[in-house]
Amino acid sequence: MTTTRAETIAMAAIAISGVLWGVFWIPLRALETSHVTGVWAVAYFQVLPTLLLAPIILFRIKSILNGGTSLLIGGALAGMSLVLYAGALIFTDVVRALLLFYLTPLWSTLLARVTQGEPITKLRLVTIVLALFGLGLIIRLEQDFQIDMNVGDWMGLASGVIWAFAAVRIKSNGPGTGIDFTLVYFVLGSAFALALTMLPLDGAGTLPSLDAIVSVLYWMVPIAIVLIIPPAFALMWGATVISPGLIGILFMTEVSVGAITAAIWAGEPFGVREALGVLAITTAGALEPVYSLLRSRKSAA
């Protein structure tokens, strides 16, 4: 497989994973009706896939340990980021959580420029401007640039910043380490999610009963196998192949899916302003991959 082909596959995998994670909020919030509430729902979503992956984790433990500090730091940052993102989906509106997290292309692009010398192209600047424009529309950024931020909003913002650091760290390790990064992400993410349950957050929920935990396994296990684990592997592998800034832009497919499904099933606002915001962000996410594909076809011809 050539590098170009690997990058094309990575871009497609990440974009599709974004679509799948666009409905991630639905089962996460569904746990609320089953008495697995607040940050305990976040912990459930992290711990269950980790337990399902336990045989693979044990099989690759030597490889993980050989990965050293860099692997552990990258996996820990990824785990912290995506746990905070899941928390944001609990504590604030779905669309606000999505878009505050998806400021990450800005942080990732700047970090990749500083740490890896990656050039900031004109096309990348256009995608960032479009994404920020869409973000401003949806969160209704007023002329005085004041935003009323709750704890969920801060979680969403922090998760995007932390993911930028995680993506740069993962990319610096290069191809071939995606599986181990994913496994470390699940293990250390589980530890961080459990630690989050100890914080005195309003609406954090209480420790669910064993009956409540068991009662949702029949639908949570398939969701973990289909909706959580494969996109995580695609994301972590893709992070070893393509640039951190591009990952964030590609994953913006989640914004469109999340905004539309939240409007339909959660009753969140979705008018002309929100539609224009989603259009701007979706366009930003599509520009660079489409341009790359067209350039590859032109070169091949």
Results as ranks from 00 to 15, higher is better:
residue 90 I to R: 15
residue 144 D to R: 11
residue 97 A to S: 12
residue 12 A to I: 14
residue 144 D to K: 09
residue 70 S to N: 13
residue 36 V to Q: 06
residue 122 K to V: 10
residue 147 I to F: 14
residue 51 L to N: 03
residue 107 W to P: 09
residue 95 V to G: 11
residue 136 G to W: 09
residue 50 T to F: 10
residue 28 L to G: 02
residue 84 L to D: 01
residue 88 A to P: 05
residue 76 A to Q: 07
residue 43 A to E: 00
residue 142 E to T: 12
residue 50 T to Q: 02
residue 40 W to F: 12
residue 59 F to K: 15
residue 24 F to W: 03
residue 128 I to M: 03
residue 86 A to F: 03
residue 23 V to N: 03
residue 67 G to E: 10
residue 34 S to C: 09
residue 22 G to Y: 04
residue 51 L to V: 15
residue 24 F to P: 01
residue 49 P to E: 03
residue 121 T to Q: 06
residue 98 L to W: 00
residue 74 G to I: 00
residue 85 Y to A: 03
residue 21 W to H: 10
residue 133 F to S: 14
residue 66 N to A: 14
residue 69 T to Q: 11
residue 81 S to V: 03
residue 80 M to A: 15
residue 118 E to A: 14
residue 103 L to T: 15
residue 13 A to D: 00
residue 70 S to W: 09
residue 72 L to G: 05
residue 135 L to S: 08
residue 75 G to A: 13
residue 101 F to E: 01
residue 114 V to L: 12
residue 61 I to L: 15
residue 137 L to K: 04
residue 28 L to R: 10
residue 59 F to M: 13
residue 129 V to I: 14
residue 130 L to F: 04
residue 33 T to C: 11
residue 30 A to D: 08
residue 126 V to Y: 00
residue 57 I to Y: 10
residue 37 T to Q: 15
residue 66 N to Q: 12
residue 142 E to F: 08
residue 142 E to I: 00
residue 22 G to E: 02
residue 136 G to R: 07
residue 103 L to N: 08
residue 129 V to S: 11
residue 21 W to N: 04
residue 56 I to G: 02
residue 115 T to L: 15
residue 26 I to G: 02
residue 22 G to F: 02
residue 111 L to P: 08
residue 21 W to I: 01
residue 27 P to M: 05
residue 109 T to S: 14
residue 39 V to Q: 08
residue 68 G to Q: 07
residue 10 A to C: 07
residue 37 T to Y: 07
residue 56 I to F: 08
residue 130 L to W: 04
residue 146 Q to N: 15
residue 104 T to V: 12
residue 71 L to I: 03
residue 21 W to S: 10
residue 89 L to F: 05
residue 73 I to D: 04
residue 45 F to Q: 11
residue 122 K to Q: 09
residue 112 A to N: 01
residue 89 L to Y: 01
residue 30 A to C: 12
residue 87 G to I: 05
residue 41 A to Q: 01
residue 122 K to T: 12
residue 13 A to N: 10
residue 121 T to S: 14
residue 70 S to I: 05
residue 28 L to I: 05
